[in-house]
Each structure stands twice: as C-alpha cells, then as structure tokens.
Design a protein around this nucleic acid. Structure first.
Lengths: 110, 110
DNA sequence: AATAAATGTACAATATATTGAACGTTAAGC
DNA sequence: GCTTAACGTTCAATATATTGTACATTTATT
C-alpha cells in the first residue's frame, strides 16, 4: 500500500537542477508563477513543486514547462532532437528485440 | 474533471528520445525489463510506459531509471551536476525573488 | 521447428499527484 | 515606509498514475 520510493543522489541533483533552471528561465523572462502555470495548463501548486525539484510531477509536464521557459532538454534544438530520435531508431533495430538474461555481461568474470 | 493535457512537439520528442535511450541502455547492459523495473522499484508496466515515451510517469522515477542504465541527464557526471547546482544557487540569489509583471520584456517596444 | 522466456498490452483496484482555496509572508515599486 | 501582488505552503477533494494480473505475441536459443 505504501509506495515509498527512494532516489539516488544523481537523480535528486538532476531534479533540483532542472527545477532551478526553470525558475531562472521564468524569472529572466519576467513571468509570474501563475502566468507560467496557466500557459502550461497546470496549477501554481504543481509548478511550485516542479521548481522545488520534487520527484512526483509527471515527466511530460516538467518537460513542457522547461520548454516554455527556454530550458533545452538534451541541450539541443528541435531539429537536432529529431536527428537524435532517428538515430536512436536505427540503433534500436540493431539491438536484440528481447534480452536473454544468460548474457553474463560483456566483462565476464575473467 | 477531465484533465486532458497537450504537449509541444519538442516535449514529445524529448520524451521519446529519453525512452529510447533508456531502452538502448538497458538492452546494451543485458537487463530484462523485469530486472530493471525491480531495481528501480517500479512495475514492468510503468517501465514499459517510460520506454514508450509516455508523458505520465513521475519525473523522479524516469530520471532514476535513466541513471540506472547509464543515461546521463544533462550529459554530465555527478561532480559536474553538483557544480551546476551550486552555480544555479548563486544565479538565483542575483535574480529578483518575485516577478512584477509590468516588466514588458527585455526587448521593449523601444 | 520446438520451446520457454521476454515483451506488448489491457484492465480493475489502489495509491498518489493535481487542483483550487486559503492564508501568512515577502518583496517590488511607488 | 506603504501597498499590494507574488510567493511559500498546507489541505481536502478529485483525477490520474501505478500496480498486479492476465494473456497473446514475439523472439532467442536448442
């Protein structure tokens, strides 16, 4: 019943940074929290949690908010995103569709 | 009652890419979906949605899964993340704590 | 080709995020 | 220094994500 999750330090750091980047972006653009929340179609409460770096909010919403204030996910523009996406599709076709656990890693024990 | 959100193309692209990066990372490490889900403390169903690029999953969970398979958020290591975080804190202290909407943007209409 | 495990996907039950309201606090601009 | 809007934060109600189960499909290996 209790879900209670734990997050690694890297994850918490990343969440914190993304939240701060959003806050900086918003402030630099002179938008109030309410304005940004409205544009993103969320409540000010949720935006508050996002800027605070909370782990709960939906990833899609967080990305959307980031985009709205000019924070670039993956540090690249739209066109480059498309390219990456296409390249990943290629890469995926080269990998096995399903993983057989017997693989004992690349770096085998000796 | 109906929440019904919309996401920009950039957001959808980013979600799709992140999902694929996770899938690639998992496959390259020879982990089954169930294994990764267990390590992340989530169900295989949720992992499935994450790899599919669905917008709904919690951002913290998505980041955690990404970290587990070696996908670096912001393309940097732990130490660099900390530095970025600290620098952002500085930057935040320089910005106004609250935004007054009358700011009419940096590029004013002359 | 046979086979067993991984994956894709749907669904009802349940845990949790989201929301709007509320209210005290802080700070921008006069 | 006043004023008042923005911000921080809590909370109950509600919408939605999560989970476990289940089953069909695909796929790696013998």
């Amino acid at each position: 019943m209790a879900r209670k999750r734990s997050y690694s330090r890297v994850t918490r750091q990343a969440l914190s940074i993304l939240g701060k980047l959003i806050r900086v972006g918003r402030t630099e653009r002179g938008m109030t929290a309410q304005e940004l929340a409205d544009r993103a179609g969320i409540s000010r409460t949720t935006l508050y949690n996002i800027e605070k770096g909370a782990p709960g909010p939906e990833v899609g919403v967080v990305f959307e908010v980031a985009t709205l204030v000019g924070v670039r996910l993956f540090q690249v523009d739209d066109r480059t995103l498309q390219m990456h996406n296409a390249r990943l599709d290629e890469k995926l076709t080269l990998l096995p569709q399903s993983v057989r656990p017997a693989r004992r890693e690349v770096d085998d024990e000796f």
